[in-house]
Simulated assay, not measured.
Amino acid sequence: MLKAKSIAMFSLYFMLTGAMQPDSSQSESGLEETVAFPEDEGDEYPVKPTPGDGTPIIRGSQAPPGHAPWQVQIYSTQSYTEAEIAHDAGLSSIASQNPGGERKKFLQERGEYGRMHRCGGAYLGELWIITAAHCVYVDGSAKNVRALRRVRLGTQNLTNGGATYPIDAVVIHRNYATGKHKADVALLRISTRGKVGSIVSGRLKSIRLHSVPSGHLPIADGNLLEVSGWGLTGPQNADAENIRLDKDGKVQRSPAQLLYVPVKHVSRRSCKKYPTFKKGLTKGMVCALGWAKSRADDVIGDSCVGDSGGPLVRRERNGIVRLVGLVSWGKGCGIANMPGVYTDISYYSIWIETAKQNVESGVWKR
């Protein structure tokens, strides 16, 4: 993805945009003619000070106020019933010991906000959010995402503050296939109808894209980046039988307070040198690798389950922050010498801009 390839890359993205193919759930009217963008609301009200979970995101830290005002949450609109929670409580932590091999979700231990949390995302402005494509699929299909998912903006704590919005339109990259990692990128447009809550002035800001096609320099291996989210906080082996247990057998919980961790950029070419990633890495993917606190420590800083779709960013010396990647996939979490894999924003930057044009309410592939 060198500068010299910008013209060829533009031609490729132009061909990929194509004609829109609506999902069968496409319906209803578009946005109202006059909209109040969330970042323009400026609603001032006292926010209850709620201490966060305090558990670091796999060797990370709690994000201080205003640290990531572009961070958004995608959560489920359906709560688990008391009967489902009670059923889960009676299951064994070993799936093979349960009828049909059902996996225990530890619903009772996780709390309501942890049970409803699904993914992260980043706010691009003008009601648009970017996330991983796999985050908009519910039970293998995207047709019900608008009814079964909602977006929280303007807060770094999942228990208070900010506002929630319904999803009006979804645009999924046409090359994404369910269960695959390629082209793991999607756009959500929220609606100001059905908004719940208010956003304190300055608590929500859009983020800029890192784009080599637009003239930004490629990011070198080893450059410092940062990933944030509300995902699981314990290290997890690649062959974990139950993702709700960390590698020491402790129950995984999602934090209420946003967490972040510094990681180092690893290009796709360099990432392929790791034995685990000789296959599976394609164009449009980059990697990032954290580090341990000491030589004897076998746990590194990393993103994990629940961080999916969340932002991988670069903080430049001039204070500008740019979106470099989206949490996509990996082999385990926080394991030494095992990078996480991210959707490369630069590779998809032209698609991001063109895919937003002339979108009506519904679910689309472009």
Rank of each mutant, 00 (worst) to 15 (best):
Arg152Gln: 14
Gln78Glu: 13
Lys365Ala: 07
Glu32Leu: 14
Gly60Glu: 05
Pro22Thr: 15
Val266Glu: 05
Ala36Val: 13
Val266Trp: 00
Ile172Cys: 03
Gly121Lys: 01
Lys5Tyr: 13
Pro262Thr: 00
Lys48Cys: 11
Gln156Phe: 10
Gly280Phe: 00
Gly222Glu: 03
Ser11Ile: 14
Arg193Asn: 08
Ile190His: 01
Val321Asn: 08
Glu112His: 12
Arg314Glu: 12
Ile129Leu: 04
Val363Glu: 10
Ala186Val: 01
Lys293Asn: 10
Ala68Ile: 09
Ser24His: 12
Lys273Asn: 04
Arg149Trp: 02
Val72Lys: 08
Glu28Arg: 14
Gln26Lys: 13
Ser361Ala: 15
Ile219Lys: 04
Met9Ser: 14
Gln78Phe: 06
Val171Trp: 06
Gly306Asp: 09
Lys180Asp: 05
Asn223Ser: 12
Tyr342Leu: 01
Pro218Leu: 10
Thr159Ala: 14
Pro262Ile: 00
Glu360Arg: 13
Gly125Tyr: 01
Cys119His: 02
Leu188Arg: 01
Ser93Ala: 15
Leu124Trp: 00
Ser24Lys: 12
Pro255Cys: 00
Gly42Ser: 11
Cys135Met: 07
Leu124Asn: 11
Asp298Arg: 07
Gly162Met: 04
Gln62Lys: 11
Lys283Met: 05
Pro166Asn: 09
Ile167Cys: 06
Asp139Ala: 07
Thr282Trp: 03
His210Thr: 05
Ser349Pro: 02
Gly179Cys: 04
